[in-house]
Design a protein around this nucleic acid. Structure first.
Lengths: 207, 207
DNA sequence: CTATGTGAATTTATTCACAGCA
DNA sequence: TGCTGTGAATAAATTCACATAG
């Protein structure tokens, strides 16, 4: 199995496992079985084993997985071991909340810059980060920041993405409720809160 | 095809189509082809046609789909036509941002209540909604609110979910970075910003 | 005896190719 | 001719069952 390509769905679950592992590590756990982890993260134990099997033997039969070793390996696969630097564009309500979001740290992210076009916001410090003028986005290349979060209003999302791509950004987490077009070499993941909420009623039984 | 169960993945895409349709309706469009919509939302045209085929004939061959009719049908399938009422628990940074999020309206949601445990926040008005004491969650049943958004810190997420379930809530959008356990009759969708960000570096080519 | 690792079976989703209608 | 609608083909993901190792 070692030489198989890791399925996309497995990649989608790896961060979930990582979160579970970090949490159980905090609780002083050193080894964990697929069953234990399953209860912790809400994924079947056989699914977990299958997922892990795509990238090697980390478990000990009869015992389980070594939490530290597995954590390191997942981080390596996800390329999180280099503490990726991230820029955020759009320091409005949502942007400020994302800047203050504590859970980035545990994944190893370093929120290294924030931008806005509002002169009132530029120069202010939010969560220890000085807000810069969005016209300075091109400095990202020199600063070796190639990950960005977009939290600007919808109308500005595409042009923000264009500017980011021009500045060498290769991965974008987009919170604007729209589809944005980028070159193939750039990966975009869109989080649209309303889209997820919109799926809920379908799954709810009649009240 | 009309009598087939609609696949989960199709349901996941329906809100995306809905967003695209609403946007193109704003632009005065009355009919749209699968190709047009594809460019708009970033999904293949044959995927779109297949998805729509699961719930009936809405297109006119040679022309495309009637925007209004299709919009109504998608809303009906997603059970969004009744303007579902939503409660939000946890008016911190993220909670406030979500309350102010404009895109809920277009999907037809009615943010009807907000709760917090912080006495300083209770009674304050945020985006026209008075923040109530979280101990009053049980009033949700009488008010016929069965959808909720959780934006509390991780430690409080599970107990908040428990309280919501007790109050009759059947669908939860969870922003806390953890897995929460609920009875089978309750549907939870978790948005973990860090999880999505954590997937990006994997897909980025070496810089 | 416990828990992993993995081929095989099954289920689910995507893609294709084209018939059929306006 | 243009675009939908859909069976059939392909691809992908999940689930199972069990051999295997500690």
């Amino acid at each position: 199995m070692k030489y198989h390509k890791i399925p996309d769905e497995t990649i989608r679950r790896l961060p979930i496992y990582l979160r579970g592992l970090l949490l159980s590590s905090e609780q002083g756990r050193q080894s964990i079985s697929s069953r234990n982890l399953a209860d912790f993260v809400g994924v079947n134990s056989w699914q977990i084993r299958k997922d892990f099997s795509y990238f090697g033997d980390f478990g000990t039969r009869g015992v389980g997985y070594n939490v530290e070793k597995l954590t390191k390996q997942i981080k390596k696969i996800l390329k999180l071991d280099a503490a990726p630097k991230v820029a955020l564009v759009g320091v409005g309500n949502l942007g400020s909340a994302v800047l203050a979001y504590p859970a980035f740290r545990i994944c190893g992210f370093d929120i290294a810059a924030a931008f806005d076009i509002n002169p009132k916001k530029i120069g202010k410090k939010i969560n220890n980060i000085v807000v810069e003028d969005a016209s300075k986005l091109r400095t990202l290349k020199k600063r070796r920041i190639n990950l960005a979060i977009i939290t600007v209003p919808r109308d500005a999302a595409q042009q923000t993405a264009d500017a980011l791509v021009k500045a060498g950004v290769r991965g974008i987490l987009n919170f604007s409720p729209c589809y944005i077009v980028v070159p193939k070499k750039v990966k975009v993941i869109t989080i649209d809160i309303a889209m997820d909420l919109a799926r809920l009623p379908y799954y709810m039984p009649a009240s």
